[in-house]
Design a protein around this nucleic acid. Structure first.
Lengths: 343, 343
DNA sequence: AAATAGCACTCGTCACAGTTGAGTGCTAAC
DNA sequence: GTTAGCACTCAACTGTGACGAGTGCTATTT
């Protein structure tokens, strides 16, 4: 069906999409004709546009306005029409330098990346940290903070940390905690954090633990320590949504902001994106975010040295500058992967 | 000057402020008269209102509209007119239960508090974590993550954590790191983190370190570990700003969001609030936030067991529901203080 | 003297009508 | 197949008049 399009139709569709992206206003036949340096008249363009409308690629808000692209048109544009811009030298420099400057652990880097994405794209930047659970266990440490209060620090091979305060029923001596730490550190090397948890649960159920009270309560605490919270997620540049004319009325924006405040929704959305490789593009209703909102999402995976996978990308209006944002997301994902694999 | 107001004038001013807070629309003389259950005619009210306008307490957007309170009027309202509502049983329940449920360390509690403030007030909730630097030093731990890569974990007496990745010039053995940790843990008890840093800098400069290479490089690493990042700050419920009719146009909102994205500004603003005790109220330009924005701020300090001080509060339009928000902020600050002092 | 009723006046808002102009669809000519 | 021409549509803008909420002033009542 898509292939039926003649070369000319495709050119005109491309012109319309790009014009609309640039201006956010319905584009008329004469505007397209002008753009084509007068090799076509507006009347001819009109005929073609009528065809495209029949095919469901364009709609007009009302009879006497220009046409605007449908989601289908964006899809086609992204799939086969768009001419991707190169990432400029300056953009590359920004991406790299921002990544490096924030050398304060994984969180810092990712937060900064999110901000960079937002700045370069002028839309909203978003980064989901690699899931901790798939990471390798490196180290656990128990610190006595007071009577019946223990701080557990879990370090993954990637350097990601999780701190947890644990209230216990009994009081533990510092030495006992050190022993517990050593026990786990010795025995759990080479496992992922999920596996460590499973292992602990398994041992808790084992014969030995049933009869060894000391071991039993040590395991109970350890189990609490390796419970993992929800994925970390970084969203930056929310204010940029306000730049977009289509979101200038308060009602729609409120919808969007509310959707994003419950980050759970985003996580769900993004975990889908993790599965496939390369840059993924979701247009409008494909995002399955608040339907009416006209939101698009461009994402890509990044990987760490331990082969855990995170996700980064840009959220903007359907009418997004795909030609420049796609390469930026792609390049950023590569850079972050590289940076995280070094260590 | 303020005291010159007759009881009746004060009543009328109060009525106007409250009416305007409720409706966000200029209030006219007859509305006030109606409110007073017909003990006064609208004409009388008009005379009084004309006086109040002369005194700079009211303005009218144009001749034939009602009057709206000036900042000065809000100030007076807050200082001497407002009848504070009690915090309802249900609100108390929410505050307490939210605080407790998020038992995952200081950050978790504060973030949840911020969200609660936002929910109860219907404005924006904001919490600034107690400055780490004033906290007592409790424990430091160095963990070897790889060649020339060390993870430093700094624990304050309050249970607040700071993780820091340190790249070193030389490689350190695990045992050496343990010794370094012990050295600091033994000698720095009872000092604040700021003092610890000063102490380390002092020792670095001392005679002994000059000639003891091992000590010198240990101190160098330690110094990096106790450098402290900016204060943590939690902002929740930004979307609620959109509920306010006065911010329904995109231009103003953009201003506000941008102001808040650079949290630095907020920190600066809020650190001022830390100095005084009790609930602090900043109205409009008193906030010295983007002048024109018509923003008010209600804050209160909270303290921890180690006597460090944090700040929590609510940001909303000048036309804010002071009578209910003030008690909420006050109560929440008390509860958080109590909760944090228990441990 | 304070409170009130009455009245003229102001000015924003709303609804309605007329104008404009960008853009379309169709048809006939090239 | 392409183009020129023309009638038609419809949102956006403009101007106008009615409306009404609200004011300020003045004369009157209490």
């Amino acid at each position: 069906m898509d292939i039926e399009l003649s070369a000319r139709s495709r050119q005109i569709l491309e012109a319309i999409v790009e014009d609309y992206i640039a201006t956010a206003e319905p584009v008329g036949s004469s505007a397209v004709a002008r753009r084509h340096a007068m090799t076509l008249s507006s009347a001819t363009v009109r005929n073609v546009m009528a065809n495209l409308e029949d095919m469901g690629l364009l709609t007009s808000p009302h009879t006497s306005a220009g046409r605007i692209p449908t989601e289908k048109a964006y899809r086609m544009y992204v799939d086969s029409l768009v001419a991707l811009r190169q990432v400029s030298r300056d953009e590359k420099r920004q991406i790299i330098s921002h990544c490096r400057q924030a050398g304060i652990g994984l969180s810092g880097i990712l937060k900064e990346t999110s901000r960079t994405l937002s700045q370069l794209s002028n839309y909203m930047g978003i980064v989901v940290a690699p899931s901790f659970t798939a990471d390798m266990f490196r180290h656990i440490e128990f610190i006595r903070l007071g009577q019946r209060k223990i701080l557990a620090i879990l370090v993954s091979s990637k350097g990601a940390l999780q701190n947890r305060l644990i209230d216990t029923d009994d009081d533990y001596a510092s030495e006992e905690l050190v022993r517990m730490g050593n026990y786990l550190n010795d025995r759990m090397q080479g496992l992922t954090i999920t596996q460590v948890r499973e292992q602990i649960l398994h041992e808790m159920a084992s014969e030995k633990a049933q009869y060894d009270h000391l071991l039993s309560r040590a395991l109970k605490i350890s189990e609490q320590a390796v419970r993992v919270e929800g994925d970390e997620i970084f969203v930056e540049g929310q204010a940029r949504i306000l730049d977009q004319p289509e979101f200038s009325d308060a009602g729609r924006m409120k919808e969007i902001y509310e959707a994003f405040e419950q980050k759970g929704l985003l996580v769900q959305l993004l975990s889908r994106c993790m599965k496939a490789d390369g840059v993924q593009i979701y247009i409008g209703s494909e995002t399955s975010l608040s339907q009416s909102a006209g939101i698009s999402l461009i994402t890509s995976r990044f990987v760490t040295s331990s082969n855990t996978v995170g996700m980064l990308g840009v959220i903007g209006p359907t009418r997004m500058g795909y030609s420049s944002v796609i390469p930026i997301v792609d390049y950023t994902a590569r850079m972050v992967s590289k940076l995280l694999s070094e260590s």
